[in-house]
Write a protein that binds this DNA or RNA. Structure first.
Lengths: 198, 198
DNA sequence: ACTTAAATGGGGTGGCCCTCCGGTTATGGT
DNA sequence: ACCATAACCGGAGGGCCACCCCATTTAAGT
């Protein structure tokens, strides 16, 4: 659970001040991103955290890294939701509600969609389990079940589905009624995913 | 056709040097945006045009204004396409192919989707016929025909449709196979628009 | 307490957007 | 052909930002 042990438990534990700063930065970043979205100023985040900008850049070498850290908890929650829904009797319903939950999280946490979109492929490699891959894996399971139940087209990859969800959220992010719009557009798109027969 | 006469024909014609700079800026902007997307540096555009940054800002007070000018031709072409398709026998097909054309333009002209998304509502008002409204009007006609032919759900507004298209294009813009992905995702979303019955 | 390696942050560099203002130039009337 | 003038130009500068260097501070192990 601690930042030091979460990524590489074998690494030497962080120094106390380092960890403290790490956490303060993370808290400040969460706050700033919630207010201003994924493009929030890194310097202001450092300022809020009461930390030099160099310290922020040392702890998080790229904006993407910082966002991943900020949203890790939320993403883990979504993955847990997916696991919970996987046991349900209606695979289609499970998939649909989960995608709705992803959208809901994305619109209520500005910047999440952008963070989820940019996978490990662009930006820095050597980035272990990114939000992108975590979400993808969680969704793949739900989609697989729905596919086996013949509730979805067999040729739709989970990446496309998530790209659609994130695209929608990204697009409506700065509208006043983002949640309502995202829901409407997602429903629109989803009905096309469901087979005509079922 | 000339920049001076297109917007307000009654206005006094621009001075020769002003018009020359206007055109050079536009050309440089088109080039830069094609390479780097809608976020291209305005200063670099001015530099490419061999013009001071102040001149650029005088001709185009906001980035949005510049993008609108850059894409005006493309948007007009899309509107013309819509008008041409409106006469066809199959309203659904007309709508679908037009949306495909919009997507194709958006992925092959980086920044267009972003420009289309931001309507007149945000940013500066008093912006006459923006790309957003032009496209919306052109699409409304096609959608209306399709709706009258009962080929689409009656409750889907054209704004949602275009938002979906632009969202998709924006999301896949920086992927290597953007065109293919956009097409796939659009088809996915569109099939949900079409009524199950027809 | 003392040593040492890790961590810090002020300050510098270079880039961006945007505005002011003194100098320049095209233009229309004479 | 000339001039007065309004329109236009662009360098310089302010404010903000990401990112890096390095002298200084500080936690951790003995």
């Amino acid at each position: 659970m601690s930042p030091a042990s979460r990524t590489v438990p074998s690494a030497r534990p962080m120094r106390a001040d380092a960890r403290r700063n790490h956490d303060r930065i993370l808290a400040a970043a969460a706050e700033a991103v919630a207010e201003q979205g994924a493009e929030a100023s890194l310097e202001e985040i450092a300022r809020r955290a009461g930390v030099g900008s160099a310290t922020l850049h040392r702890h998080f070498p790229s904006r993407q890294r910082l966002l991943e850290a900020v949203f890790r908890d939320k993403v883990e929650a979504l993955c847990a939701t997916a696991a919970g829904l996987a046991g349900g009797p209606d695979p289609w319903h499970a998939l649909a509600t989960w995608l709705g939950a992803v959208a809901a999280h994305a619109v209520s946490n500005r910047g999440l969609a952008a963070s989820l979109m940019r996978g490990a492929h662009d930006g820095d490699p050597a980035l272990g389990a990114t939000c992108h891959t975590m979400i993808t894996n969680a969704g793949a399971d739900l989609l697989d079940r729905a596919r086996r139940a013949k509730a979805v087209r067999p040729d739709v990859p989970i990446t496309d589905l998530l790209k659609l969800v994130n695209a929608i959220c990204l697009a409506v992010e700065r509208e006043p009624d983002a949640a309502a719009q995202a829901d409407r557009l997602l429903t629109l798109a989803l009905t096309g995913v469901r087979k005509a027969g079922s």
